[in-house]
Amino acid sequence: MKILAYLETLDGALKKTAFETITAAQTLAKQSGGSVVGLVIGSADTAQAGVYGLADCLVAKHALLEKQSTSAFAETIAQAAKAENADVVILPASSTGKEIAPRLAVKLEAGLAPDTTAHEIVGGDLIATRPVYAGKARLKVKITTAKKVVTIRPNVFTAKKADAAATVANRDFAPNLSDNHVKATVTSVSRNIGKLDVSEADIIVSGGRGLKGPENFHLVESLAGTLGAAVGASRAVVDAGWRPHGEQVGQTGKTVSPTLYIAAGISGAIQHLAGMSSSKVIVAINKDKDAPIFQIADYGIVGDAFEVLPKLTEKVKSVVHR
């Protein structure tokens, strides 16, 4: 199978999801006996993609793409997929990837498997695994069309460096776009400067109602700071106005799958677990030994977060030497 990997960029550099997308694409190419071509939109330094084994990369440029319109991005990717005769297009299930992929699938008359965590080729068919019911079940879905679109859940396909780094050959790609392809345009972006977002973090330290008030979240923040982690929160504390909505993890907040998730003073309601149960290692700190969070925790401390968090931060410092 020929696989087109859409590589996301930010400020001229490839994002972490781009390397994950390359890894997922190469695994699939290996299984199906095929090759991978990358695609970036706009100017970006693609050299780093070679570290992950990508040798061939399209660079799409057009004045209309500067308007950051997902409909124009979808059209560009569709044209590239046709030009390259790609069987599969892989994108990250990021906030923009999730908006592009359904449009792309319609344009290519392709079936779409969204937010996938594993792929297999069975008898020439692509079967994707993905979490459903907020992670309470796993669905295996077969794409029955000739062309296929897949988005991958961030942080699941760990980017793998190639044994020998490749030199990336960039090929210019000029899509044929008109004003009608530009539908909704991004007029401004506000980033939480200097703050790592839970959806992109490798480690998350989350606090819940057990912290008793917003004034105590410095305990969570200092452990997070020591670990280079993002701060997360339960809905109870977001609804109470202790923490911003962007930090909420769970069914109505963000879905995360970091390598390490530390939950302090969080009971482990099913809607919270929905957002974080696919984390690789889960640590719970709760004074109630029967709190449901302990049922999915790999490690736990039964104790008072007010005493445990400062001690934990101190001991972690001696290990991480940050």
């Binding site: 699938a105 008359e109 392709a110 079936g111 779409l112 498997a113 079967i127 979490p131 459903v132 992670g135 309470k136 079940a137 796993r138 669905l139 295996k140 879905v141 077969k142 794409i143 029955t144 069309t145 149960s277 696919s278 889960i282 719970a284 030994k289 302990f294 049922q295 999915i296 925790a297 790999d298 490690y299 736990g300 401390i301 039964v302 104790g303 008072d304 005493e307 445990v308 001690k311 934990l312 001991k315």
Partner: peptide, 28 residues
């Protein structure tokens, strides 16, 4: 339809976690 459900399963159950008390030794 462009996709077909092949199967649904529950996620693999987690083994029992290692749960500690809150003494200095436990945290270390």
């Amino acid at each position: 339809a462009r996709t077909e459900i092949v199967g649904m399963e529950l996620p693999a159950a987690k083994g029992k976690g290692k749960i500690f008390g809150d003494s200095d030794g436990d945290i270390s």
